[in-house]
Structure formats: structure tokens, C-alpha cells
Nucleic acid binder design. Sequence first.
DNA 1: CATGAATGAGATTTCATTCAT
DNA 2: GATGAATGAAATCTCATTCAT
Lengths: 197, 197, 197, 197
Amino acid sequence: MTRSKRQLQKHQTRQQIIEAALHQFAKDGLTVARTSDIATSANVSHGTVFSHFPTRELLLDTVIEEFGMRLAKRLHELVGDHCGMKDVLFAHIRGIREYEAFYTRLILEGRFLSESSRHSFIMIQSTISFHMIQIAEKEMKNNKICSQPVELLFNTWIGLIHHYLINGDLFAPDGSVLERYSEQLIDHYLNLIKGEY
Amino acid sequence: MTRSKRQLQKHQTRQQIIEAALHQFAKDGLTVARTSDIATSANVSHGTVFSHFPTRELLLDTVIEEFGMRLAKRLHELVGDHCGMKDVLFAHIRGIREYEAFYTRLILEGRFLSESSRHSFIMIQSTISFHMIQIAEKEMKNNKICSQPVELLFNTWIGLIHHYLINGDLFAPDGSVLERYSEQLIDHYLNLIKGEY
Amino acid sequence: MTRSKRQLQKHQTRQQIIEAALHQFAKDGLTVARTSDIATSANVSHGTVFSHFPTRELLLDTVIEEFGMRLAKRLHELVGDHCGMKDVLFAHIRGIREYEAFYTRLILEGRFLSESSRHSFIMIQSTISFHMIQIAEKEMKNNKICSQPVELLFNTWIGLIHHYLINGDLFAPDGSVLERYSEQLIDHYLNLIKGEY
Amino acid sequence: MTRSKRQLQKHQTRQQIIEAALHQFAKDGLTVARTSDIATSANVSHGTVFSHFPTRELLLDTVIEEFGMRLAKRLHELVGDHCGMKDVLFAHIRGIREYEAFYTRLILEGRFLSESSRHSFIMIQSTISFHMIQIAEKEMKNNKICSQPVELLFNTWIGLIHHYLINGDLFAPDGSVLERYSEQLIDHYLNLIKGEY
DNA sequence: CATGAATGAGATTTCATTCAT
DNA sequence: GATGAATGAAATCTCATTCAT
């Protein structure tokens, strides 16, 4: 029992650091955010960060992985079995919205991260594309959406969403771009890909 | 005369620095490239960089502005008067391709630059959108492309292109993504937006 | 009874720490070895080290003292009553050989330790010199070794041995210098100091 | 000329740093001395140290090499052509005496330095042994010193000197051990190795 | 008494910027 | 105007030590 309390404490600190890092990385950038700021923001000493994560890179890896897992789980919850394309797109946006800032940083800086972080990020994208492509193929058969390469279909959507996220400060200076544009973007996208009958 | 010779010399050095900076910023990133590397690459001393551009930020601003002007000029040359959507898209890609690396960096890091750099970047985007939107409106009237908000039409294209550029290392590990995918992307996009008649 | 059991336990832990420290200090150096490594090597927690030895310095002091006592005892066993110079030299080397690495560290770093550690180390040297000088004086009378200041006689021997220990990596890259050179060094030394008759 | 003044300045700063480092390494130890203390002691900013020597290790390498060259040069000056063993020993001690503290640190810590520093140190030792062994062989032929392996002869002397240096604080608490004991040590050593005739 | 998470002082290194030449 | 040596403010990471459990 004594042990479990200590373990709990440790786990809690670890989570605090991860949460603070998630916030700081989102705010200042994956490559710019300082470990000392993360420590301050997590209400622990600077040294404590390194007692949980030997290097900054390892912390970042962990944070990205954690984010990936949360997002995957959330998407899984949101994407029901019998849903159509529209539902998937909504789920996608809702899933991302909870971590909008961090996800945007990941789009921007993901390319320059360590092998393992990069891998985590690619996994995250795969999770999203998996659902979309599955639905797309089904709806193409039904002629609900017109036949075309699923890869391009997916990339068009992702590109559109990322474009709005990346330029969030222009599209929605105060607040969430996703919140503001999700409906419009989904409608537009569905209109673009809808089948002709 | 002596003075004008000096001024010429000065102007030449300035251009060397800008050129070198363009190269280094593209190669190492807008926030990461070192002023000392730029100096080396420009064949001038480190100090000289600062005698032409008081701060690193000012140099970056200048480089972005310069890039913007060149791109605008190039696009103007490439986009003829009587051209259709396809021609504009091709022109767009061809214009960007000459500075693919730098342009990609701008997409990735543009948001976090100084007010004035950010402004330059936005101007660049406007130049591109101006041509596209003009054509789009014309072709919508002709029913060549289906009627829809031009803003979204433009953003879909930009998002798609940017997505490929940002993930260039995945889509085209060795070489230019634009070279490899331009045709495919243009065809796909035109197919998406084509009018139904 | 319970108390005595606890005390036993405590004493045992203390000995484990001392033993581990002896090993780590020998391996990594008196000033470099980490308390956390000592803890790990002693199969106790890092904190336990400090519950037995308030500071790292005190632990080091204790270890050196312990080493001194063991060496003194060992030398006492090895040096018989009726032995000659050769026997003493052999005993000396055999005594040291058991702790070759630690002893070497002591030669190298002993000078920069705390007062008390330094004192312990000097005591160790005295133990050795005591035996040598006693024999030397006897053998000088017998003309077995030629007459000369005992202090210098002793220092010449010590210097020679220490030189080989300090440069062990050159003289015996894999293995014990003492094992490899003891005979040769003893013969050489005896030859140098032998009486002329 | 302007250039030469700047170059002179730079060279001077470099020398100041080397001199300060020589002093600090001697005082605090090759592995312990702080770059910031060296900077302070050299009257330059901390950054300046790194603008001349990219890493601490490179600075140490340079200092050791510099020391080696100075010592070699000094020994060369001191060791005449027609001198005997006694002269060589005196020269050796006089050469070392000028850098007594640094040389002592080198004995103590040389083993744990980088490959190149270690190499420099070994070169230094070789310089010394070269002279001694040459003389020794000549004097053995003359029967001035008794015949024995030159390697051991050399190591006995080196060991003796190093022993006094290492324990300088005991043998000569305030001042130079070499100054105090050189004569006595040389006499003793010569006596030990003298030929029997 | 043992534990081990948390602490924080300090060490090396980087790099935009300044300024004497 | 050009030069490049000097500057010094960070940033990451280490480790002896403390103290709540």
C-alpha cells in the first residue's frame, strides 16, 4: 500500500510533465519549447523532468506517442460501425479539435523529428486514413461518391484540413479554426467528391 | 564615380547575402539556419551580414520579400491572358518548383515569423489566389467547373499542393514532389471541380 | 532480540555498501564514481547509502579506512618474523595485488581527498614502510644490502611499484601489472640495493 | 598591417587562454578545472574560450601538447652533448620544475585522457627516456654504472621522481619538492646504480 | 530503517550581435 | 564598408543530497 501510494505519486508527476509538455510543445513549438518551461508549467523542478525522461527527445517522443494513443482511442469511439463519409469527417475533426494546437505543431514540425517520433506521427495519420478509405471504397460502390483513387481522395481532405490548421491565425484569429469551419469544409468536400447520378 | 562604384559593390554584396540566405534558409530552416553559415555561403565575413541587415530577422524579412517578388513576377510571366484553369495550375506549380525547398519552409514556418514576414507571405498567397479565382469565376460561368465558393476552391488546391510539399520526404524521398506529382494532382483536382453537364 | 536482529541487518547493509563502494571507486575512480551506482551495485536504494553515510565523502573515508585495515592485517599475516627483504617485498606486492585497482586509485587521487582520507592513506603507507625499514636496517648491519638512508630506500621501492601500477594500462594492458612484473621488479630492486662484498 | 595587428591580438588571446588553462588545470586538475574559471583567469569571456577551442577536450589537448613542446625544447637546451648521467638527471629535474604542478597532474590523470592527449604525454616521457637511456648505455660500457636493463633503470628513476611529485604536499608542504629534494634524490639514485670497481 | 522521487546548483556548449581595426 | 574576435545570455543535462512515505 505504501508502495502503491508512491507509485501513484510518481505516475501523477509523470502525467503532469507529459501534460505540461503537451501544452508547451503546442504553444512554443516542438523544437523550441524549453524543458525549464515545461518543468515550471508542470510545477516540478527542472531536474525532475530529466529524472522521468532522460533526454528532451525522449520526452517529446513520449508526448507524441501519448497523443497518438489518445487520438486513436478517441477516433475509435467517434467512428461508429454504420457511419457514412460525413460521419467519419466529423469524427476526424472532433478528434483533432481536442488537441488542435499540438496537432498543428505536429503537421509543421513532424518531418524534422527523430525516427521514432516521426513513426508515431505516421501511425496517427494511418489511423485516420484507414477509416476514411474504408468508407470511401464502400460509398464508391454505392455511387454515393464518385470513383477515384482513394489515396488522392484522402490527401485532398487532409490537405484541406491541414491548410486551415496551419493558417489558423488567419482563418480564426481568436479561437478554433476547426470549430468555425468544420461544417463548411465538410460540406464543401462532400460536394466535391459526391457521385454523379 | 568612386561612390557609385562603392554603391555597386555594396549592392552586389547585399545580393550575395540574400542569395546565400535564400539557400541556407531553404536548406536548414527559417528559424534554424545560422547567420554564420549564411556568411560563409555568401563568401563574406560574418560581420558583413550584420552591416547589411542589422538583425537576423530583418535579413529573413528581406529574403522572404525578395522571394515573394520573384515568385509574383514569375507567375505573371507564366499565366497568360487567355488561359484556362489547367494552365493556371501548371503555372502555379512551375512557379513554385523553382524555389520548392524555400517555399516549403515558408509554409511550415511562415506562421511564426515577424509581422512583416508574415505579411509578405500572405501577399505571395494572394498573388496566386488572384489568378486562380479570376479564372475560376470565368469557368464557373461557362459551367466548365461547377459552381462553388471560390475561396474554398482555392484552399482545396493550395491545401493539396502544400500537403505534398510538406510531406515531400515521404512522397518523393529523392527529388522534387512537384515534378513527380504535378500532373496527377492537377488531373485529380480538375476532375473534382469539373462542371456536370 | 528484535533490536539486535535489526542491528545485524543494518550492519550487513553497511558492509554491502562498503564492498560495493570499494568496487565502484576502484572501477570508476574515487572522485568520479557515482553514489547511485554504488547503491545499485550494493543492491540497496540510493537513499540507503545516505542513511548509512551522511555524505559521499564520509563513505569514501570509511572505505579507505576499511581498505587500510584490511591491507594492514593482510601484510601482518604475510610478513613473518624471520623473513628477509625479498620476503617483505613479495608480501607487499601480494598484499596489494588483492586490491590492485583500488590501491592504484588511491595513489592517483589520494592527495586530493579529505584530511581524514588522506590520513588513512598515509597510515597505510606507514604500515608498509614500517616492515621494510625494519628489515632494511637489519640487513644493512649484515651488509646484505648496502648502507644508505632507509627513507630513500623505501621511497625508491614504492616509487617503482607505483610507477608500474599507475601505468598499468601500458605495462600490462590486459591483466595485473603486479602479477606480470613482480618478480622482475623485486630482482631488479634487490640487485640495486645489495651490499658490496 | 591591420591584419597583422588583429592576428597578433588573436594569437595573444589564444596564448592567454592556454596559459590560464595551464594554470587552472595544474591547480584544479585536468578533469575538474572549469572552462569558466579558465576564462576568468585569462581575462576573457566564457564564450571566447570556445571561439578558440571548440571543446574543452580540444583545449586540454592543446595545452598538453604545448606543455610537451616546451618541455622537450627545455630539455634539449639543458642536456648538453658531453654530459654524464648526473647532468641528465639534473636537466630532467630542472626541466620539469618549471611546470611542476602541471606535470604532476599529468602523471596523475594522464591515463584517463583522450587518445591524443595520452599520446602527447607518452611522447613527453619518451623524450626524457631517450636522453637517459643513451647516457646509461654509454656509462655502462665505461663501467661507471653497473650493467642492468635500461628500461628498469629508467623506470626506477622516473618512479622515484614521480613518487616525490605525487606526494609533494607531504615532502614539501610549502614549495617545490624538486627544489628541495633534487640533489638528495640524484645522489641516492647515482649511488644505487653506480658501477662496482 | 529503507526507499526512491524530487531537488537545484552548476558544467559545457551555441550563436546572434557588437565593435575595434 | 568589410572584417572576425569577443561577448554573454540561454539551453540541456548530471548528480549529491533531502525527505515524505
